[in-house]
Each structure stands twice: as structure tokens, then as C-alpha cells.
């Protein structure tokens, strides 16, 4: 299993510092500090200042610590989720969900058809039953289906 080092122990405090500063700048510039009481920007600015300050401490602490190790496989669900959502726009939500489940079990986990198909079919059916039929969430039917239906 491949591992890779990503210096998130330093990246995170740098980012949170930036977010803190951004909130202070926006808060003071656009939203107002005090107007007969705390203004719209009062609370976020104070929090932003504290966050920026604490981030510096976190950064200093982080330098001493080892970087976390990442496994490449961690990104797969993330990438697969994006691909599935993209696919869902074209062929519809539930077919895409089914293909994702089946594809994952078959290609990544190398399950046999006999083992993987029941799992993907039952899961998709259960999700369809609960979300689409019962709770009537209007999931997109996909470009293709819409084109056929006119």
C-alpha cells in the first residue's frame, strides 16, 4: 500500500490563519464593528483575530511534530464520489449509484459477480425505496432520460 507524506500539519494552521485574517478584513471593512452595540462584523472579527493568533501557535507546535502519513487509497472514495455525481447527471441518480457500488466491489475489491451483484442491487433498491419512493426526494433523472421523455 502506497503511503505519501503531505505536510498538512503546517498547511492547516497556515490556512486557518488566512481564514481568520480574511474574516477580520471583511468584518471590519464591510460589516461594521460597533453601532449602538456590537455590529455585524464585531463577533466574527474577534473570533477571526483569536483564530489567527491560535493558528500561529498551532504552526509552531506543528513544526516539531511528524507529518501525518497518507495512504493513496484514501482518495479513491473521494474521486469515486465525484465521478458518480457526474455520471448521475447523465444517466440518473440510481443507475449511477448502482454502477458505483458494483464497479467499486468488482474492480477495486475484486469481488466475484456472485458476491458483488446482490450487494449492489439490494443497496440500490433499498436506497431507491427509502429516498425516492417513500420520502419522495426528487432526484435528477439524468440528461438521457429527460431527452427520451421530451
Amino acid at each position: 500500500m502506497k503511503t505519501l507524506k503531505l505536510n498538512t500539519r503546517l498547511i492547516i494552521p497556515v490556512l486557518t490563519f488566512a481564514v481568520g485574517v480574511l474574516w477580520v478584513v471583511y468584518g471590519l471593512k464591510n460589516y461594521g464593528w460597533w453601532d449602538q452595540g456590537p455590529g455585524s462584523g464585531f463577533f466574527p472579527s474577534i473570533i477571526g483575530i483569536i483564530l489567527a493568533g491560535i493558528s500561529i501557535i498551532a504552526l509552531l507546535e506543528g513544526i516539531k511534530m511528524p507529518a501525518p502519513e497518507y495512504v493513496k487509497a484514501s482518495w479513491y472514495p473521494f474521486i469515486a464520489a465525484f465521478a458518480t455525481v457526474g455520471l448521475a447527471m447523465i444517466i440518473g441518480f440510481f443507475p449511477a449509484m448502482f454502477l458505483f457500488l458494483e464497479g467499486w466491489l468488482k474492480i477495486y475489491e475484486k469481488y466475484s459477480w456472485k458476491k458483488s451483484l446482490p450487494i449492489s442491487i439490494i443497496t440500490t433498491a433499498a436506497l431507491y425505496g427509502i429516498f425516492a419512493m417513500w420520502l419522495m426526494v426528487p432526484f435528477p433523472a439524468g440528461v438521457i432520460f429527460n431527452a427520451i421523455r421530451g
Binding site: 433499498a126 425505496g129 419512493m133
Partner: peptide, 24 residues
Amino acid sequence: MKKLLTLVLMAALASTAVFAEGQQ
């Protein structure tokens, strides 16, 4: 898997709405 089966059963029981695909 039993949980899923239970879910399916319950969903089937409860589903009152059917997506009526009317004739065009």
C-alpha cells in the same frame, strides 16, 4: 445484510406513493 433487507421490506410496506408515468 439483514438490516438492508428489513429496510427494503419496510420501504415497500410504507411506500404509498407510486410514480405514475402517465401515457403520453
